[in-house]
Design a binder for these strands. Sequence first.
DNA 1: CAGTTCAATCGATAGTTGTCAATAGATACG
DNA 2: CGTATCTATTGACAACTATCGATTGAACTG
Lengths: 117, 117
Amino acid sequence: MSTELKLTPKQKSPNGEPCCEPVVYPDVERAEAERMAVIAKALGDPIRLTLIDVLRKHAGKVCVCELVPLFDVSQSTLSHHLKKLRQAGIVDSERQGLWAYYYVNPEALDELATWLG
Amino acid sequence: MSTELKLTPKQKSPNGEPCCEPVVYPDVERAEAERMAVIAKALGDPIRLTLIDVLRKHAGKVCVCELVPLFDVSQSTLSHHLKKLRQAGIVDSERQGLWAYYYVNPEALDELATWLG
DNA sequence: CAGTTCAATCGATAGTTGTCAATAGATACG
DNA sequence: CGTATCTATTGACAACTATCGATTGAACTG
């Protein structure tokens, strides 16, 4: 889909030599990058990344009341981080009575990992 | 306030039923997550992620003067984004005369991709 | 019913980030 | 020398983020 190139005739130095090959970037890739950025942004915090790791290693649904004491932040702050992860599609949650259980949705992480590698 | 117990042991509901298995998290993993967060944070912006993609696809060192016209931001803003990527170890740069050439350092991305699974 | 517990939300606030215009350095050319 | 070009930095500002304490609401218990 490299149909569209938005280019910029290559520039030249005062002595007329080009600085490099022309660079193109298709719109499709731009949209993809935008989507990956949403996921990466949600991962761009130590607490959230640690949360992911805990949930992943636990290989099951983990109750919020078990997650809170693992971190040096308040319950409301942790709830905020979990919300961010949910909004990015990285985790999902279920309620059972008083408790809320969180678990990783591997799709989002796989998408980013694939994009990276 | 701080008379509380450090409860890693599982909590119990009023009726005595545990909410889930106990959760632990080693310090080593915490440090690792911290490092991954730095990389993810640098990737958490559409422009920066697109920059990575452009550099990667170009498979060579790309001059800043070719990068700037690909985006709808000022030259100083783009310079700022490139700096962020450099600080996270995701890209590197070289100067040749007037021009600055950027290229991807694949190590950081590989690290994150591996961490993600 | 009243009291407890858990998690989400609200309101406030300090700190960070993305952005631009302007400027400063560095380098090349004449 | 002086001028032009390219990139990095600075300063300012609006927008966003992480954090807390307090509160709310739901759900269970006795």
